[in-house]
Design a binder for these strands. Structure first.
Lengths: 233, 233
DNA sequence: AAAATAGTGTCTATAAGACACTATTAA
DNA sequence: TTAATAGTGTCTTATAGACACTATTTT
């Protein structure tokens, strides 16, 4: 009798809330790892592609609609010992969202929320989800420099300062305001002016932009070599 | 009765032979797609990780030893219809090799060889292997600019001109000889001088180098913006 | 000697980054 | 009117790339 491995899809959904990079997690309501934090995800069902599995599980476990997100496969984890029950192979998907509503827990889930990514969090994740999260974050940081993925953290339309804040938080550095502005406006097709202005605080309101058609940034938006550390707050 | 998908690992093994980018393929000896070209690969067996599957299948089908290669997972293909027999999900691995010996076909394989990558080849591949190959090639080209993967195409020790030829063939452009030399020698930890010189043709023999410890090139080695087209031959 | 490739350096155009100054809003 | 942020431009420095010249080998 051959032991067929079962397949799951897990999601690393990132967003920025309260000026911090956060990841969507659930508290498991079932064994194994009952009561522990985990990435949302679950088993492949008949006739589904794995991306469909990911979208379905996201909705079932957290109530979030994957149609608004772009799912990008980031890794596969096939260590025979990674699940204590039986052989389970998982595929991880990365998704990035603007600051969304609070998720609501589905069946078999005790709670779900956005969690700040820090060392403490890594210690508390079920299965090998710390490893999966770490790999996905590394990819997200690489994509930030190479693609226009940064704009997907912002609710459209957004100001250049909101976009700059995204880069500052994820790269953990401080960008020069004027240079950042010149830089992104100099990349043709990166941003599209919406024709409006907007303000979410004191000071002169900035022009509001949408993401342009360009996806590959070809290494523009790399972190400045002489980057200062991010000033907290 | 739930239909469990079965899992395979497929390999995209690239090399440069006869001044051309080539990929390792097999001619299938079994249905489906008997007599057709395909990527080497096969089913996961009990207790294996998928990377172990890839290494084992590579050896069984082509006689090549994966210990000398670095396998990098590049994609997952889970379309329910991708295999005409039954549900099969495959994970693709990219490996890059210096010009190796000829492979020798294993059981269930009619023949195996290195094939030049061109449009004609894509038309003749079994399953969705054209898509898998295409994705892997795109990744390999990206890795060439961002990492030191280019050196793995060269048998150590190698001259800078041999390395330049790799970049020229894969990027399909011509590099200025002097500038390329200055550039790679200027990247600390990229190349290590072996202390020797070598010649494989007329002209002054070049110094022989090995790959240095640096893996991430952080966007150095990008194609020159003003690149001329590669002169054939 | 001629042909071929390796190695080195210089010059120029471009881009990255520091920084200052002006503009426009809220308080 | 002051504080805060947006927008623009200038200057400096670093880097990319063109190109030329020297060096070392085979034929």
């Amino acid at each position: 009798m051959i032991e067929y491995p079962r397949l799951t899809a897990d999601l690393v959904v990132l967003t920025i809330r309260d000026d911090r990079l956060k990841v969507l997690l659930v508290v498991r309501g079932r064994q194994p790892f009952k009561g522990r934090l985990a990435l949302p995800g679950g088993f492949l069902e008949h006739g589904e592609s794995l991306e469909e599995t990911a979208a379905r599980e996201l909705f079932e476990e957290t109530g979030l609609d994957a149609d608004r997100l772009h799912l990008k496969p980031t890794g596969i984890y096939s260590d025979p010992e990674r699940d204590p029950r039986s052989r389970v192979i998982t595929v991880s998907y990365l998704a990035i969202a603007p600051n969304l509503e609070m998720p609501s827990p589905g069946d078999e889930i005790l709670s779900t929320d956005w969690y700040e990514v820090d060392d403490d969090l890594y210690m508390n994740l079920a299965f090998d989800h710390a490893r999966i999260l770490e790999d996905a974050l590394e990819q997200a940081r690489a994509l930030l420099e190479q693609t226009s993925i940064g704009t997907t953290f912002c609710k459209e339309p957004f100001t250049i300062s909101e976009l700059r804040r995204v880069y500052e938080i994820i790269m953990d550095i401080q960008w020069n305001q004027g240079n950042f502005q010149n830089k992104v406006l100099g990349i043709e097709g990166f941003l599209e002016y919406s024709g409006e202005k907007g303000s979410k605080g004191p000071g002169r309101p900035g022009k509001l932009y949408r993401a342009g058609p360009v996806r590959k940034l070809n290494g523009l938006m790399k972190r400045p070599k002489t980057a200062g550390t991010l000033v907290e707050g």
